[in-house]
Design a protein around this nucleic acid. Structure first.
Lengths: 144, 144, 144, 144
DNA sequence: GTGGTCTAGACCACA
DNA sequence: GTGGTCTAGACCACA
């Protein structure tokens, strides 16, 4: 589930990791008590600096989404699900507002916008895994 | 049209300027051949450093959206409209896909998603430049 | 013959004018004693600042290519032809060296380079009139 | 490979850097994924301001030739080679056309032109970075 | 007046 | 350590 980290994204890697975890919890892929990969393991897998992973885990802990058992590992906390669901909903709704406003501003009609939405809804769910690319598209498209 | 620059946004000021121009061109508010305010003029109006404005104009030039006549000023280029329209549409559609995917992933039903969209569409037009959040969302998402 | 001034070029307009005159003299299109358009006339035709035209004429006078009869106008000087021919040859040879070196550096083979040259030579002469575009291509391609 | 930057050239230093990178990529000296020297490192080596190097890297990023990993460095992007090869070829061919047209216009015969070309080709390779004149010729021609 | 280039330097986010 | 953003200000070319 971390295969979607995008090093070309202008979004900080640690933020991407945090979001991946949040959405995985919100969607039930990660459940209370599940263990996350160790800092070292994940950093090697993603070929990124261990500090980066550690920072994500620390943030998630501060947010109450994971907890650490020293010497044991990092686990999804008891009320992570509700927290993440709420967070994700808020984020999604906010972004929907923004993007619809942008769509209008770009000259798209309500018709068009609805059509695109419908198309997205009909298409097979492409859950959070697409977000890094999505994020990428939010900034100035880069090197790719 | 630059009255909506938000110096306190986490989005770089020069990115905000670039996006305002892009969306203004896409929506027809700026047309091929139109002259942009001079670097000095805009920097004074926005109370920012001329270098910051110059950076925006430079980027826009590299992107082919404006061209510079030395000693004369900066103008919207011939095919800026198609470029910007395309860019903005692609951007918006991409983001719509992302956010819908995120919405699903966050557990929202198609119903809900459609409702939120509809609500946004019905609300008084919130053209791009009126929504600081929109501006925010347009650029490199930082922190969170 | 001034229809080829390119305001999108990053080359100063006054330099373009100077070169147009020089090449026109070198190629015999302008001869000793011929009168150039007045500053005002040319500036209106090209929609540029009269100072720009005046600057070109002044430079050309300094170079001995034109002379001014006050109240009468600006004329091609007696030995302009030899001067311009020489200038243009030197310029052309210098640029040929440069561009061939660049071609090599860009990975083109001697074969290819010769072929392109041959093709240019066979094509109908496209005398100096193409230079503004040419000049444009020398800089970073801009707005166009 | 940056030893040929000429601070006294009339071509902006940042343009020289951009061109050196472009041609290095086109000729295979720099490959996808290679890391460029850090902004600070290069600025110290060239004894120029870090901002100048950063400007070059930024432009190259907007052009899709490099990408940035924040906190990590700047790397040659995936499709930089094709981009640069194409860019450089187009540039070179365009300039060849121009200069040949100029040569004709200046009264040189096809014979002469071919001879000069041949001479350049036979001469020891003068790869781009060895020719200050070449560097000069690559950018916005100034004054003359 | 216009924009372009470059320096010096502060402060920040990220790894 | 890495790059990103922004300011302040000098000096220049061009119109």
């Amino acid at each position: 589930m971390f295969e979607n980290i995008n090093i070309h994204s202008s979004v900080a890697v640690y933020v991407q990791i945090e979001n991946l975890v949040r959405f995985a919890v919100a969607s039930g892929k990660l459940k209370s008590g599940d263990q996350l990969p160790s800092v070292r393991e994940l950093s090697e897998k993603l070929e990124i600096n261990p500090n980066t992973v550690a920072k994500s885990y620390r943030d998630l802990e501060v947010m109450g989404i994971v907890f650490t058992r020293r010497g044991m590992g990092v686990y999804i906390s008891r009320d992570a699900a509700s927290r993440c669901t709420e967070d994700c909903r808020r984020r999604v709704i906010g972004r929907l507002h923004e993007v619809v406003a942008e769509a209008k501003s770009a000259g798209m009609t309500g018709q068009e916008i609805k059509q695109v939405c419908a198309k997205c809804l009909d298409s097979d769910a492409v859950p959070y895994q697409d977000t890094p690319a999505a994020i990428l598209s939010m900034a100035k498209t880069k090197g790719k």
